[in-house]
Design a binder for these strands. Sequence first.
DNA 1: CGGTATCCTAGGTGATACTG
DNA 2: CAGTATCACCTAGGATACCG
Lengths: 123, 123
Amino acid sequence: MARARHTSFECSPGCAVEATLSLIDGKWKGVVLYHLLDSTLRFNEIRKKLPSVTQRMLTNQLRSLETDGLIERKVYPVIPPKVEYSLTERGRSLEPVIMALKHWGDANKELWPDEFGLVVAAD
Amino acid sequence: MARARHTSFECSPGCAVEATLSLIDGKWKGVVLYHLLDSTLRFNEIRKKLPSVTQRMLTNQLRSLETDGLIERKVYPVIPPKVEYSLTERGRSLEPVIMALKHWGDANKELWPDEFGLVVAAD
DNA sequence: CGGTATCCTAGGTGATACTG
DNA sequence: CAGTATCACCTAGGATACCG
């Protein structure tokens, strides 16, 4: 369908922010992209890096990233199955964004929400 | 409770990405922050910049941003009411992040999801 | 003007079990 | 190993109406 010629945007300029955000929200997309910056990874390799993600959710997020053209999924027809995920060029172009997010996060650890697994000293 | 001494983080490094993301997700937070980069704004001024946000949602997002220490809410006890929103220092420190999101979005308009109000040439 | 209060829905997320 | 399929929940988000 006619997604084709979006000749003009009535969006206020900030809309670009949301557009980008919409691609990397979802509970795990950010981290997945981050880890793929380093190297191509297999399904279970990604999984190991995300302690608490479920199989279903990881599959979901990966499919979504694939649909958005940010990652590529390469299936090797072997047994047992082997599937590799890597960044597309477009995905890699997000590197500055991902790194900006990471740097800010590192610089502001003190105020991370509780969910992010901080270990509180028992004593 | 003891949010106090998060002495260590077991999070894999990518966690910082999610932590930051968690502060600016929510359908309108990104744009709101973006617009506040320019200037302090009143409630309805922000609203005008977000064509389709509902009053309730905008209030929600603003409260959330305030709770996270990213914006400041200043109430003038006058009639009619006047409330101004501005970035805190911490909020402003997100500028590189916001701008990274915006730049990428601008550079990749072609593949914005449909929801972002693109106007397709009828012809 | 700048909000609450209430109600409602879609879909994002999780748990679990099964499969090629 | 890398997924589907189901079920079930819960919160983000929207519509609407009222308030100080």
